[in-house]
Lab assay of single mutants.
Amino acid sequence: TTLTVNTQTYTFTSEEEAREFARRYGAKTIRKTNGTWEVHG
């Protein structure tokens, strides 16, 4: 199964959650914005 996250942004309140998600789905960018963490595919 392949998950494609081209134009979607996922927002997390903790860096740990964001990094775990990025690691699991191979997202390329993690960015902190206004106190939340954004993961970009």
Rank of each mutant, 00 (worst) to 15 (best):
T7A: 09
G41E: 06
W37V: 01
T29Q: 07
G41S: 13
T13V: 07
T13H: 08
A18K: 00
Y10G: 02
T1Y: 05
T2I: 13
Y25M: 14
S14T: 11
R24C: 10
T11C: 15
N34H: 03
F12K: 00
V39T: 02
W37I: 02
A18D: 00
G35E: 06
G35L: 04
T29D: 08
N6V: 11
T29F: 12
E20Y: 03
T7M: 11
N6I: 12
T36M: 14
G41L: 15
T7V: 09
E20I: 05
T36D: 06
S14V: 04
T11S: 09
Y10S: 03
L3P: 14
E17A: 08
W37K: 00
T7N: 11
R19F: 09
G41I: 15
E15V: 05
T9H: 10
G41V: 15
F12I: 00
E17W: 02
A18C: 02
N34C: 15
G26Q: 05
F21P: 00
R23H: 10
T2D: 13
G41R: 07
T29P: 08
L3A: 13
L3Y: 04
Q8E: 10
T11A: 06
E38D: 02
E16N: 06
V5E: 12
A22K: 01
E38R: 01
V39I: 04
T36C: 15
R24Y: 06
E17F: 02
E20M: 05
T7W: 12
I30E: 04
N6A: 11
F21R: 01
Q8A: 10
G41P: 11
T1R: 08
T9N: 08
T11D: 02
H40S: 14
A27Y: 15
W37D: 01
E17P: 00
E17G: 02
T11M: 07
A27W: 15
E20D: 09
E17S: 05
E38W: 04
T33E: 13
R31Q: 11
S14Y: 03
E17M: 06
T29Y: 13
Y10Q: 05
H40T: 15
R24E: 08
T33L: 11
K32G: 08
Q8H: 14
T13Y: 11
T2R: 14
F12Y: 00
E20K: 06
K32N: 11
Q8Y: 10
T9V: 15
E16S: 08
K32S: 08
T33V: 14
T29M: 14
V39M: 01
T2L: 10
R31A: 09
A27I: 14
T1L: 12
E16D: 08
R19H: 06
N6Y: 07
G26K: 06
K28V: 15
W37N: 01
F21D: 01
I30N: 03
T7L: 10
E16G: 05
F12W: 00
I30C: 09
N34F: 02
T4F: 05
E16W: 09
T33W: 07
R19D: 08
T33H: 10
L3H: 14
K28Y: 08
Y10L: 06
F21Y: 06
E38P: 01
T1E: 13
T9E: 04
E15Q: 04
Q8R: 07
I30R: 05
R24K: 13
T11H: 08
V39D: 00
T9I: 15
K32M: 12
A27L: 15
E15H: 03
K28D: 10
E17K: 05
T9Q: 06
T36H: 11
V5L: 08
R23L: 08
Y25S: 08
T2S: 14
F12G: 00
T9K: 09
F21C: 14
G26D: 04
L3T: 13
I30D: 02
G41N: 08
E15L: 09
W37M: 01
K32H: 10
W37C: 01
N34W: 00
T2W: 04
T29N: 06
E20V: 02
T1F: 09
S14Q: 03
R24W: 06
G41M: 15
A22Y: 04
I30Y: 05
T1D: 13
Y10F: 11
V39P: 00
G35Q: 03
T13M: 09
T13F: 11
N34E: 07
G26E: 04
T13G: 07
I30P: 02
V5A: 12
Q8V: 14
S14C: 08
T33M: 10
K28I: 14
T36E: 09
N6G: 11
G26T: 02
H40W: 10
V5C: 15
F21S: 01
V5Y: 06
E17R: 03
R31Y: 10
T11N: 06
V39K: 01
T4K: 10
R19A: 06
K32A: 09
N6S: 10
T36A: 08
R24Q: 10
Y10K: 06
F21E: 01
Y25P: 00
F21G: 01
F12T: 01
R19P: 00
N6M: 12
E17L: 06
G41K: 08
T4P: 14
F12P: 00
Y25D: 02
H40D: 13
E20G: 02
G41D: 08
T13N: 09
Y10I: 07
Y25H: 14
S14H: 03
T29V: 15
V5W: 06
V39H: 01
A18F: 01
I30L: 05
T2C: 15
T4V: 13
V39W: 01
Y25K: 04
A18M: 02
T4S: 11
A27V: 09
V5T: 12
K28A: 12
K28N: 09
K32I: 08
W37Q: 00
R19W: 11
R24S: 05
T33R: 10
W37Y: 04
V39Q: 00
T4N: 14
